[in-house]
Amino acid sequence: MTNRTFVLACLTPLFIFSIAFLALPLVRLFLASGESAAGWTIYLDILRKPRYLNTLILTVLVSLATTFAALAVSTTAGMFLSRNRFRGRGILLSIMTLPLAFPGVVIGFLIILLGGRQGLVNQITPGHVVFAYSVIGLFLGYLYFSIPRVLLTVMAAAEKLDPALEEAARTLGASPYRVVVDVILPGLMPSLIAAGAIAFATAMGAFGTAFTLATNIDVIPMVIYTEFTLSANIAMASALSIVLGIVTWALLLIARSLSGTTVAAGG
């Protein structure tokens, strides 16, 4: 067997698997989206019918809020943790990366423990404060999901940032504030955009968290789920899946071209 045949033989199982269980199912999904009475105009319906349009707008808004909140929190914490060495730093870092392995459902449950009827906030504050099943709960769930991912991306970038750049700016008389604005943020920018794209894409597609919290909130993954299981509107579920898939894929493609990394672990 020549070298080339051997290398191609090595790729064969992957090729067969991805054709059988990825390519063909996706083609089927796409074809299914056009099989309703509406035909291919179903994609226009997403924008024309208020139910779907409102869902789309709400999902984008919650995802945007999650993205900016996660960026703000994780950049601050990430810069702090990568630039300072102190006792307990390792523990803080572990706490902040632990949720990487939690599936969305578990995070949803954790938010219920925080803001549900038997939740901590309701117990320690006077009056009836339950936010777990509202948009705020969903936002907090997504934020919980995104903080560790953004943090790791930011810290990886901060460690690659040449400290000599900061020192050079200092020797040229820049104040700490100017150093942040002129050197650190521009240096981190590609990673911040990448991390933002990751946060946005995961929030758009998060099913587990929404499944536990958003029983009464229409976000895209929940609508796909109910269209498919309850309404048996398979064409619409397929169409929404394809739109969602394309959006998240494109965003993560941008993220990867900017930072060259994909943060592992999701669910």
């Binding site: 089927r28 999904l29 597609g205 498919f228 899946s241 965003l251 669910g267």
Partner: peptide
Amino acid sequence: LAVPGLALALA
């Protein structure tokens, strides 16, 4: 990695 699991499962 990018396409939500829900969409893949439907497919």
